[in-house]
């Protein structure tokens, strides 16, 4: 899919029909979609989703569009295949569009991996919800958290084991929720409830040294509560390695993990089930070493 998208500049837009800034392309897509729903188009009364994919040429003209999830079912497929994969469906529709475009001058080289940039002192958090029922939800989301020197003070090198309240690290620990799921949203704004409270006492202790590097380990269990009215919480364990020079107490690097569980609500049986939520943290020199 990424190979097929090489020539394109990708963007996303969200909103409703009465949005004051409704782009022309979106207006056209929705007008045609509504026409189909009303039986005026080729796909009479098709089952449709709320996601559409549109291809515009360089001048902004709409070239092709298709429903994001309206893939072919078993009746149309050979070999008894039950349903076309979402990837195959999207690729098939993209190829329809590319035949209408002149792509000779567009870039063909392998695009670089561009992860969100947290700045020199910031932290990258890679979050993965290990959801078995929806493969797309397993895709990692990378959050870049900008930090200041003061944000690193609680993690100064400890001469002996010290206890740190997890709330002091809220700026980056608050990224530990599944951002791609939209599970817990404000019914009015539809914005995801952010993590508002983090509880837990973390142990920060010296962990030996090697050559000119001193190590410390930050470990413990944390409980994260979001800003929803029902005080919804999830929890997990932190394991982080910090390095320090022999002479300075501020960390030189940070690498570690979060291993937790997130409760997802199933409206069908009105019950919660536990889904593993994992994250990886990396900061400081790691920002330069990794793409």
């Amino acid at each position: 899919m990424v190979r097929l998208l090489r020539p394109f500049i990708a963007a996303s837009w969200y909103g409703h029909r009465n949005a004051p800034d409704l782009p022309n392309a979106v207006r056209t897509v929705w007008r045609e979609k509504l026409g189909r729903q009303n039986g005026n188009g080729p796909g009479l009364r098709e089952k449709q989703s709320n996601v559409d994919l549109a291809i515009l040429d360089a001048k902004g003209n709409l070239v092709h569009w298709f429903d994001g999830f309206h893939r072919m079912g078993g009746k149309s497929l050979p070999n008894g295949q039950r349903q076309e994969s979402l990837g195959d469906y999207t690729a098939r529709e993209l190829q329809k569009a590319t035949t209408k475009l002149h792509l000779a001058d567009t870039p063909r080289e392998e695009p670089q991996l561009k992860l969100p940039d947290p700045g020199q002192l910031g932290m990258r958090v890679f979050i993965t919800l290990l959801e078995e029922r929806m493969r797309a939800y397993r895709a990692p989301v990378v959050e870049a958290v900008h930090l200041t020197r003061n944000d690193w003070n609680p993690l100064a090198y400890p001469d002996r084991e010290t206890i740190i309240e997890a709330s002091l690290l809220k700026k980056w620990l608050s990224q530990l929720y599944p951002p791609g799921v939209m599970e817990r949203t404000d019914p009015q704004t539809k914005q995801v409830y952010r993590i508002s409270k983090i509880r837990g006492s973390l142990s920060l202790k010296p962990a030996g040294s090697f050559n000119n590097i001193r190590y410390a380990l930050l470990t413990g269990r944390i409980i994260l509560t979001d800003e929803g009215p029902d005080h919804f919480s999830h929890e997990g364990d932190i394991e982080i390695v910090l390095t320090y020079s022999k002479t300075r107490s501020t960390p030189q690097s940070l690498r570690g993990i979060f291993d937790g569980t997130y409760l997802r609500f199933n409206p069908m049986n009105r019950a919660f089930r536990e889904v593993p939520l994992q994250a990886v943290f990396e900061a400081l020199p790691m920002v330069d070493k990794n793409p």
């Binding site: 963007a11 837009w13 969200y14 994919l53 549109a54 291809i55 994001g68 567009t106 939209m182």
Partner: peptide, 15 residues
Amino acid sequence: ENRPVFLVIIHAKYG
């Protein structure tokens, strides 16, 4: 850059 655009349209309050 004389390139086409791949636009994801989400009919929702947020996405």
